[in-house]
Amino acid sequence: MGELSRMWRETDHRYRMVGEKCGNCGKVYFPPRDICPTCHRDSIGKMNNVEMSGNGVVVSFTIVHDAPPAFSRQRPYILAIIKLDDGPTLTGQIVDTTPSEIDIGTRVRSVFRKISEDGHSGVIHYGYKFVKDQ
């Protein structure tokens, strides 16, 4: 038992934050989507890959105590909504810090970390998290 193709096909998006830019209106999306919610069918076939810088600012954050099994060893962990300098807003963890160091407006940058594992013998899922930008 384990999750394979569902995770694998997101590799570029989660490893390198590859999002999409609408070739019609120029708006940047992350997570990626196939249709621009502004341009609708005019955007079809014009959504182009674009890599995020990974730099951004904390819009809101929480300290999660009741954690699902995948995150039990990290609890409590900080989960935040982050507005990237590239435009899009996303959800991710802030690590290597304490809650007292984080506030709405704190600048962060992305790092490459282990997100979860399929038990002891399954695949390891990697992706982006954030650290405070020094």
Binding site: R6, S60, P68, P69, A70, A80, Q93
Partner: peptide, 30 residues
Amino acid sequence: IDISSSILDREWEAFFGGTPAAMAALSARK
């Protein structure tokens, strides 16, 4: 907690540690 997180975006919220309570807390803090 993982099962109830299936009401969220599994790939872009729950995958990264989002839970229903966590998402509500993000709204609450702001």
